[in-house]
């Protein structure tokens, strides 16, 4: 599959749409709807960027982040939180954990695309 961006969100509606847009922008994209699925996908093939929701059933966004950063193989993968948790505390917490970016929902799609560009060369 090559370099791909992993989108993790339990809102399938959102991930489907985002996948469409990013692919139109020239990125390889794979979507999963839970943290557990994301971990499985990463084991399969390491993505170039992870964009993850936080509030998810089971393995949530934070768990996923910890898991990724705990692994030597994946620690370097840029990690972006994309969340409806929008308080400064939430954002601060996410960035403090070491996330490369924190995008709050609802978001402007152009903004997200420009952030993705910072971490991924167009495939």
């Amino acid at each position: 599959m090559g370099a791909y961006i992993l989108l993790v969100d339990d809102n399938k509606d959102l991930t489907d749409n985002l996948k469409l847009v990013l692919e139109m922008e020239g990125f390889g994209v794979r979507t999963v709807s839970s943290g557990a699925e994301a971990i499985a996908a990463i084991r399969e093939e390491v993505p170039v960027l992870i964009v993850a929701d936080i509030v998810m059933k089971g393995v949530n966004g934070y768990d996923l982040f910890q898991s990724v950063k705990a692994n030597q193989l994946t620690v370097e993968i840029p990690f972006i939180f994309l969340s409806a948790r929008t308080t400064p505390d939430d954002v601060g917490h996410g960035l403090k954990l070491g996330a490369d970016a924190y995008v709050t929902k609802p978001f402007a799609v152009e903004e997200l695309i420009s952030i993705v560009h910072r971490f991924v060369r167009r495939g």
Partner: peptide, 27 residues
């Protein structure tokens, strides 16, 4: 926080779809 989150989730989906329609309508 929850209401905000619950509202934002569908709202972000709507916003994304309208933005996609708007930006990528011809594609």
């Amino acid at each position: 926080a929850t209401v905000s989150h619950e509202l934002r989730t569908p709202l972000s989906a709507i916003k994304l779809r309208t933005a996609t329609l708007n930006n990528y309508y011809h594609r």
